[in-house]
Structures are given as C-alpha cells and as structure tokens.
Design a binder for these strands. Structure first.
Length: 421
RNA sequence: GUGGGGGUAGCUCAGCUGGUAGAGCUCCGGGUUGUGGUCCCGGCGGUCGCGGGUUCGAAUCCCGUCCUUCACCCCA
C-alpha cells in the first residue's frame, strides 16, 4: 500500500506557485474590468448532453476525453471539459438576452479532459476565458482578441504570435467542405490513414496533419478563405482591420481549424515559442450557431479560453509577491509566550500582518525566523518588559531598538507603518 | 491510444562494469544561562516509485506496473 498521490495529470499548487497564480488572475481580472467583462461562475459539471450537442459528437473532446459519470439518480453528468457551452447554457437558462447585448462575461475555473499528460497539458487544467454573446458585429471579435492580447502583454507572456482564420458560416462552409472533400478524394493515394478517415468524417481536420505527404496535398488544397460568402468575407476583413488597428499583427493561417465543432467565421489562436509542442497559449473564435444548437434562440457569440499553466510557462520570470509580515513577536521566556500571543492579536486587529513563534523555538531561533520572514519590525517580550508593561521594538534592517508601552502599541505601529485603518 | 528518456533524503542530484546508501540546499539545535540574517560545529531525515525474477548478495541486471517527461494525436 503506497501513499496516496495526486491523480495522474493533476497537480498541487503549493503556496509560492499559488501566489503567482493569484497574481496572474488578479491582473487578468483588472483587464477584464477595463474591457467591460464581468465575472461569472458555472458548475464544475453539467448534463452530458450539453457538451455532446454543444461541442460536437465528432470531436475528440466528446469522443474520448470527457469525464462522464452517472450520479446516484442515474443522471449522466460530465466534468466541464471547456468553458463556452456552460456559459451559453446559463445565458439561455436565465434569459440573459434581456440584458444589454452583447453580454460580456469572463470566467476562471478548472477544465477536465482525459488526455495523456505532457508539458503544458493536464487532465485538470485551469482556464481564464471571455465570452461576448448577442452580437455578430465584427468589432466584438476584434475586442475579445485585443483583450487577450492585452492580458498577455500585461503579464509578460513572451514569444507570442496571433494566427487567424475564418471558418465561414452555414451559407458557405458546407459547399466548401464538399469542394475540399472532392479535391482530397482526387488525391487519396497521397494521404495517410488518419486523413483518409478524416475525408469522410470531417475533411477540415486534414489541415492539422503533420505528415509530409499530407501537408503537400493540403498546401495545394482549396482554402476556405477563398471560398467565403460575401457576408463572411466582409466580416473577416473588418475583424482583421480592427485587430490591426489594435496594434496586433494577425497571421493568416489556413491550417487553423479548431477542434470544436461550434466555431463559425472568426477563429484565432495565440501561440508562444516558449511552450514546446503544446504551443497554444490561448484561442477561440465565433460560435454563431452554438446557442441554437443547445436549444436556445439563434444567438451569435464569440470568445476564447486560455490555459493558466501555459501562461505561467510562457511568462518571463516574475518575482514572488512578498509575504513578509509587518511584525514578528518574539518571546524570551515561557511566561512571555501568552503575552506574545496577545500582542500578535492586537497587531492583527489593527490591520497589521503579525507572526509569532508557533513551534516552541528558542529566543535565538525566533529571531532567526523573524529575520527570514522579512518582517520589518520585531516586537521583543521578556520578563523584565512584561513586568513593566513595556516591549522592545527592533527595526530589523537597521537593528535599532526602542522601549515602548505595550498598551496602544498596535495603533502606534500601524500609524508608523502607514497602515492606520 | 502509440513510441523514446527518467524515477535515490522535503528540494537539486551523485552512486548504477552487482557487496544492503552519499553530497549540497532546506529544516532543528549549539557556539551568547535574554537578541536575527554571515560564519563554524552538530543533528533530524531515505521500505533507493511499487511488485516479481536472476544471484550467496540487487539502488545497481531482467520482466511487469505506476508516476513523470518528450514527441505523435489533440488542445488550453
């Protein structure tokens, strides 16, 4: 019987890493607010049918990656594998079309996919994401892209490039898919086994293939951007123009065919050269058919998701946020320990961060802890001081000490540290 | 799901042509019977991922398994 470990593909965020994570999310939250996106939370699991219908039966996510289970009431539930379908479900369920449109929201939560773990890929991973629902205006596409770019810039995510494509819509895509399928059938002899299957199931996915011969075939294949209907063409051109106005350099990528069935028109992806094979650091697109697909009124939407683990990997090293207390209370005798506890409480009550020894250390050990903790002040308590109602307050980096009354100490130190409440 | 690399102290690793374990850092204590960060000394700490096999003897060789890592696939 070996000791329990975190399940395969999951990880613990220890305090230092959690502090960095919190800082990332706080920065993102600030930018979400600047762009007018409001925080929203949905359940960790949903009815399985939501993802089957929303994400698409033919996708890898639905076919082999979902954590699906029956609860005690025989309901088929699935741990959320992606963020967009749940937001759209909530939009429909709560009649959010009655709010000013587009509805602009963001989320921060774990996603669950049964995949083989590797660098930047986990079975439980966290995403921040944004969704703007209720407007087909190309300015919305550009806004969400600019928002994600701003977050990366603010965080210092390095080596980032933006790839974009258009998937067309229900008017032009079906015809294009048939054109592509016909072309591929004409060159079947040059395709790998996977691609031969894709020709039947979803010819668009052949663009993902890394096999040399397939790539050669696809390089010469008809491209969807050249087969867009006039509405999609105009939409895409406007999005590109606005994205450029935002100071970004979109690279057209005819291979960018995202693996979720709900995408229409704009798709985009930010990749970073700091990530190895799992190079995508954030991506998304427009999903004008999704809400109707899951049973709502036909409603356009656009959004993206970005993986926190990959953001952290691609960020330049950040200094750890300081966790130094304002004061460390040191007791020089067993009798002073209770008084040290009281003083720490008094300081905390005044809004100061205060620590004291909780491990029965010697006075020297406590001072050593005080030094390591980075505390600005040490409050020293001994028998002599206790009897006189005094404490000695040492400035840690200078070493100077002064004798102060224990009563009113918290207010005095708070004022001195500029932390009056 | 397929294929390559790796799993030794809390962390980073050495030891691996078989003879039952080491270093640095961390942590705790001492050097000052009441005063930190440097320095010196000492100490705590490991069923060598797990299971099986070969052998007089396995951290070391073989098999299986789990985890991890890199790539494929897919995506964040």
């Amino acid at each position: 019987m070996s000791a329990p470990r975190a399940p395969k593909g999951t990880y613990d965020l220890l305090p230092d890493e959690a502090a960095r994570r919190d800082a990332i999310v706080a920065t993102a939250a600030r930018l979400f607010a600047a762009y007018g996106y409001r925080h929203m939370v949905t359940p960790e699991f949903e009815e399985t049918g939501l993802f089957e219908r929303g994400v698409g039966e033919a996708t890898d996510i639905v076919r082999k990656e979902m954590y699906t289970f029956l609860d005690k009431g025989e309901r088929s539930l699935t741990l959320r594998p992606e963020g967009t379908a749940p937001i759209c479900r909530a939009y429909v369920e709560h009649g959010m079309h009655k709010l000013p449109q587009p509805l602009k929201v963001w989320y921060y939560c774990p996603m669950f996919r049964y995949e083989k773990p590797q660098a930047g890929r986990y079975r439980e991973h966290y995403q921040i994401g944004a969704e703007a629902i209720g407007s087909a205006d190309p300015a919305v596409d550009a806004e969400v892209i600019a928002l994600l770019a701003a977050i990366f810039a603010e965080l210092g995510v390095e080596g980032v490039t933006l790839n974009m494509n258009s998937m067309g819509d229900s008017t032009c895509r079906p015809a294009y898919v048939e054109t592509l399928r016909g072309y591929l059938r004409g060159r079947e002899g040059e395709l790998c086994g996977d691609c031969l299957e894709r020709v039947d199931i979803n010819p668009l996915r052949t663009f993902d293939c890394k096999v040399e011969s397939c790539r050669a075939v696809l390089d010469e294949a008809p491209r969807i951007v050249e087969h867009l209907c006039s509405e999609c063409r105009e939409h895409f051109d406007t999005v590109l123009a606005l994205v450029e106005r935002a100071g970004l350099e979109p690279h057209l990528d005819f291979r960018l065919v995202r693996g979720l069935d709900y995408y229409t028109r704009t798709t985009f992806e930010f990749i970073s050269d700091r990530l190895g094979a799992q190079s995508g650091v954030g991506g998304g697109g427009r999903y004008d058919g999704l809400i109707a697909q899951i049973g709502g009124a036909s409603t356009p939407g656009v959004g993206w998701g970005s993986g926190l683990e990959r953001i952290a990997l691609a960020m330049r090293d950040q200094p750890l946020p300081s966790v130094a207390p304002d004061a460390y209370v040191v007791s020089f005798s067993a009798e002073a320990r209770a008084a040290a506890f009281d003083i720490a409480q008094q300081l905390r009550g005044a809004g100061l961060a205060a620590e004291l020894d909780l491990a029965g250390r010697s006075p020297k050990g406590q001072l050593k802890q005080a030094g390591r903790s980075g505390a600005r002040l040490a409050v020293l308590l001994g028998l002599d001081e206790l009897g006189a109602g005094r404490v000695r307050v040492r400035t840690m980096d200078g070493g100077g000490e002064e004798d102060l009354a224990a009563a009113g100490l918290a207010a005095l130190l708070a004022a001195r540290l500029g932390k009056e409440s």
